[in-house]
Design a protein around this nucleic acid. Structure first.
Lengths: 236, 236
DNA sequence: AACTCTTACTTGTATATACAATCTCACTTT
DNA sequence: AAAGTGAGATTGTATATACAAGTAAGAGTT
């Protein structure tokens, strides 16, 4: 096990993030220029630039050619589309939750899944399929591929007792996630499981989650459009 | 009028986008490596790299150290995280944008809208209905109620020239926003506008935006599920 | 006082180079 | 046949440098 050295541009990003989050650098205040960071951290301008550039893309900074780099209108990122355990969500609504485990096995991944999970086509990954119920009505089908290198005992779990998300969080804390949200028509198979007609639109969220070790899992969450809704709250 | 020279990395981005959009490069197929692009376009590796890098951040490509760069899934994608101007979004994809203004008037609000806009039922608010096109295909219907106390000249705008979002941002900078995302079947009326069948699922985003003065507007954005997708990226 | 010009600073684009880390695949060894 | 090795390709990180382009502020002129 070799300790991976942290890249220099990441160190600078971290430093700037801390200044902003701790309130030492307020909104709209000027942050050090590329040349100043170059000196402070003894790096090349291109490396300092990369840190500022990526933070700008993430929305923490705003840059203006000729005048400088500034702290943006407050951090939006953190509390948007928060990833919640669906069981908690349902309990919080005062409703009854239970789950049905439809599949839990090792499978060979196709090319698409392989790329997204950072595996090779034909490699084996863990697969789970769980149907979540709210007050005995099916509310969400969760189909999930899990990176076997990062989560050892996935196949020994009982996902009627703990949700896959809760288990994975306990094994490998999330550091990052991407979502793709689409409106789709469910396949016949899925329509049947969700007890909906074949023309009911479904909200489909594809979520890819990372831990510090790499891509952990790839989940497809399909919910009837008339029974489920996503919310998010941004602060600028 | 000085003709601005297009940056080289943009030329390469454009080239790759075209290949993908025209279907010459299919999903998951390999795209030229940094070194190949370096030769093809007679640029340095860092410039070729920048093109690939930015397209990866935009979600068009997927990269894997050691194996190469590949075409990602190509559905249109926007971000929940950042509230973007749809015109910019479409332009950034290298596509042509135009809009059609279906309505722009003052209306009496019903109770639901009144509550959400912090007005009284029966008060008057501004209402706009704009259809956005990507390459002459309708991609999103935007129906928006605007708080007349905070935005004076809303009715005098021409929303084929500037999007409502862009205008509102210039008048009253956003400080906060909430979203609700649902999958729905469009009404007959809306199906017709979007040129879709009445069983095509639609992604519907309801967005409420605040400025420092209070609730600015209430927008309902309806897009065909097969042509539009939301994305978001979280870092913990 | 108002205007223009210059200058310094900052970010944007581009190149050339070097080495590290990772993956693939053919080849060799067992 | 299976396992291990190593070369080559590919992306990741980092540096040094150069010039372009936009901004702001001060100097100088009218």
């Amino acid at each position: 096990m070799t300790q991976v050295k942290t890249a220099k541009y990441r160190v600078i990003k971290q430093h700037i993030c801390e200044k902003i989050e701790s309130g030492q650098w307020l909104e709209h205040s000027k942050v050090p220029s590329e040349n100043e960071l170059t000196e402070q951290f003894s790096v090349s301008r291109m490396t300092a630039r990369r840190a500022l550039q990526e933070l700008t893309e993430q929305g923490l900074l705003v840059r203006s050619q000729g005048s400088g780099t500034f702290v943006a209108n407050f951090k939006s990122q953190s509390s948007l589309l928060e990833i919640r355990n669906i069981a908690d969500e349902i309990h919080d609504r005062g409703h009854q939750y239970h789950a049905q485990q439809l599949a839990l096995k090792a499978v060979e991944v196709n090319e698409e899944v392989a790329i997204l999970l950072a595996l090779k086509a034909g490699d084996s990954a863990y697969y789970s399929s769980v149907l979540h119920f709210e007050n005995n009505v099916p509310i969400q089908l969760e189909q999930r591929f899990v990176n076997p290198k990062l989560v050892a005992n996935y196949l020994e779990q009982d996902f009627t007792q703990i949700t896959p998300h809760a288990y994975l969080s306990s094994e490998a804390p999330l550091t990052e996630a991407t979502h793709q949200v689409e409106a789709v028509l469910a396949s016949e198979n899925i329509s049947q499981l969700l007890a909906i007609s074949d023309i009911t639109p479904c909200l489909q969220v594809k979520r890819r989650t990372w831990s510090s070790q790499g891509v952990v899992s790839l989940a497809t969450l399909t919910s009837p459009g008339n029974k489920y809704r996503l919310g998010s709250h941004l602060i600028f």
